[in-house]
Amino acid sequence: MLNQYNLKMPTNVFAGPEAMHNLNVILKDSAAKIAIFTGGHIYKLGLLDEVIRIIENNGIEYDIISDIPAEPSYIQAQEVIDQFKVLNADLIIGVGGGSVMDIAKLASVLSTDDYTVKDLLDDPLLAKKQVPSLMIPTTAGTGSEATPNSIVGVPEKDLKVGIVNSELIADHVILDSSMIKNLPKPIAAATGIDALAHAIECFTSKKANPISDTFALEALDLILNNIIEACTDPNALEAKHNMLLGSFYAGVAITSSGTTAVHPLSYPLGGKYHIAHGVSNAILLTPVMKFNEPVIKVLLAKAYDRVVKEPNNELSVEEKSKYIIDLLEDIVKTLEIPTSLKTFNVPEEDLDGLVEAAMQVQRLLVNNMREVTPEDARKMYLEIM
């Protein structure tokens, strides 16, 4: 655990039923022209309707960029940002999942021509906030609304890479469960597992500290006890709200701690095979936790004590640890998320490339409590082949 630690997070966070109404408060303080970043499906589902209604009621000009691709490469990200630059907007609103919010956050530091997305891959510290941003997540989720991270694909490396700089942190966040009410189960499940991975990885990270533990444990509690209902019952708005909070808290934990081996092993699966980020995390979550268990069992037992509502106080540390890992595995299976790379036609002959790509992500691998060698990575990939 770190002896020195810090916390950076969005300046304003509005949450709860009808939290969207707080957009009026934000707009009173700013904005002659707004750029809305979103995905085409969000626009078609009508999730922008309330946002647009409030903006128009405030008499503010706006433009919509609705062609943001899922899992974008840095080249695609730059193309979207080039569209944004000519708009001369003074407020950015990102309405969508992780890809939308990551690109919106990049736009907030890229209204300049002084550097590009490619330049930020080489030196993230070049980024300086130029346009304030508001994030409204439509999944629960990636936690991008809370983090200083933007993830983009690097096709020439068959890898996804995180651009990390506190300047990327959103200025405002709105968490409104109405925005995820009709989220299809596969998307709700995959993004929910992503948030779950964030929480448990940050809690078991070498960089864990009292601040990150506070948010990570609360996130674990909220997610583990709500994810099934939130993903399977469209009307379970309380469970969905708890998932939004859990996702946000897990994102805050990332800013103070950091994810571990699940994420670096998953990045090549997204970069090369375009497997959804949450799905690739779900596939790797149990193998990585089992690999780490010898050195994190005390932490997993502590998680058991926090999240299990009717605990068996006679269980040993080992039994509590096993319970949590089994629970993670059961949730993935219950939500019908694939657990094998066979589903995605990933050939075993690609194993060397996967290992090589994953081992490049030392930024996160160094957080893992147990050292991950190339041979360890190979064994974990083989488990899911």
Rank of each mutant, 00 (worst) to 15 (best):
E201W: 05
D221H: 13
A216H: 04
V164K: 14
E218Q: 14
A219V: 10
I163C: 11
F203D: 03
A208I: 09
L168A: 13
A170W: 00
L183C: 10
P155K: 15
D171G: 01
E201C: 11
I163E: 08
V161F: 08
K185I: 09
I174V: 10
L183Y: 05
A189K: 11
L220F: 10
M179E: 05
A199P: 09
I187E: 08
D194P: 07
I163Y: 11
D171M: 03
K181F: 12
D171H: 12
G162F: 00
V152W: 02
I211F: 14
T214C: 07
A197K: 12
G192H: 02
L183R: 09
E201N: 04
I180S: 06
T191L: 01
S212L: 01
I163Q: 08
M179F: 09
V154Q: 11
S177V: 14
K157Y: 11
T204L: 07
S178F: 09
S166Y: 01
L159K: 04
I169L: 03
D194F: 02
I174N: 04
V161R: 15
V154E: 10
A199N: 09
P184W: 13
P210K: 06
N165L: 02
D176C: 02
C202Q: 07
N182R: 02
A197Y: 00
S178L: 12
T191C: 05
G192E: 04
M179K: 06
K157Q: 15
F215T: 07
N209C: 13
F203I: 04
E218F: 04
S177F: 13
P186L: 13
I193Y: 03
K157A: 14
C202N: 12
S178R: 09
H172S: 06
L159C: 02
G153H: 09
A190F: 06
T191P: 04
S205Q: 08
D221W: 03
I211R: 06
G162H: 01
M179P: 00
E201A: 04
P184V: 13
T214G: 00
I174T: 08
G162A: 15
D221Y: 13
N182S: 05
T191N: 08
I169N: 03
E167Y: 01
G192D: 05
E201V: 13
V152S: 02
L222K: 15
